[in-house]
């Protein structure tokens, strides 16, 4: 299964703070995989380790390997990794706010040898996100949250990725928009065989669209498997999916249920 493989990766911030502790995961070519977990579990750190964006936050991969199609990524700088087909849609969208959506797409287009012509790529983005085309000439900073998320994904697609990593695309969006954006991601994954690694807190919506998922807590992978299997797991239901069905208040226990995977 060629694709992305992380093997016991450790990331340390500021040389003291151990943020992820031996994370191993695999994402096969064309697969759609989610990395679920709560705040501060190490989801974003894992993505940044793959895309090479730990540097500005004084983070460093101190142990483990990250390979993409068998090549070692850790030696490469961030722009080279994008050149290899890995793109990271950052948490909080981070569009170029003072540029128009059109210019955002121009900025992300590499124009290197062997890439598709700019117009073809842009038309494709506007086909996925027609709403962006309507607002192509206004400043991106003034777009709505949903439109900015669409732009962030569209901008990432301009780099002609083979693996797209999305960091909480549902953050701060209305459920109907989350539905729409997840639908488009699923569509792109199916249509272009684009590999997707999706980081989310919104487990309910995510487990409906992905093939497999990993569950990360305190910097460690605690569970993994097919999305359907995970969704049925009673612990996942209790802690990530908001419990199942009615609660029988006679049977309520007055102590917190312990997560079974914590030894």
């Amino acid at each position: 299964m060629p694709g992305l493989a992380l093997s016991s990766v450790e990331v340390v911030y500021d040389k003291v703070f151990l943020a992820i502790k031996g994370v191993s995961l695999e994402v096969g070519e064309g697969e759609m995989v989610a990395l679920l977990g709560s705040n501060g579990a190490g989801k974003s750190t894992t993505l940044k380790a793959v895309s090479g964006l730990l540097g500005p936050e004084r983070g460093d991969v101190t142990r483990g390997t990250i390979t993409w199609d068998g090549t070692d990524l850790l030696r490469m700088g961030a722009p080279d990794r994008v050149g290899r087909g890995i793109v990271h849609v950052l948490e909080g969208r981070r569009v170029f706010g003072h540029l128009t959506p059109d210019e955002n797409l121009v900025a992300a287009y590499s124009g290197r040898r062997g890439s598709q012509p700019f117009d073809a790529l842009r038309d494709q983005v506007y086909e996925y996100f027609p709403r962006l085309k309507e607002r192509a000439k206004s400043k991106a900073g003034y777009l709505s949250g949903g439109e900015q998320q669409m732009l962030a994904i569209g901008r990432a697609l301009m780099t002609e990725p083979r693996l797209i990593m999305l960091d909480e695309p549902s953050l701060g969006l209305a459920p109907v928009l989350v539905e729409e954006i997840f639908g488009i991601i699923r569509h792109i994954n199916a249509e272009r065989k684009l590999t997707v690694l999706l980081v989310e807190q919104n487990a309910a919506a995510t487990l409906r669209i992905v093939d497999r998922a990993y569950l990360i807590e305190n910097g460690q992978i605690v569970m993994s498997g097919e999305a359907a299997t995970l969704a049925k797991n009673p612990d996942v239901q209790e802690f990530y999916l908001g419990g199942g069905g009615k609660v029988d208040y006679h049977a309520v226990k007055h102590y917190r249920r312990r997560k079974r995977w914590l030894a």
């Binding site: 895309s51 090479g52 050149g83 990271h88 950052l90 540029l99 121009v106 780099t159």
Partner: peptide, 23 residues
Amino acid sequence: TRLGTKLRAVSDDHVASWAVGLS
């Protein structure tokens, strides 16, 4: 120009620029 647009993008957000492959 395209190069000029990229430079403006870099001034906007360094991390986002790295993330889409701008040096």
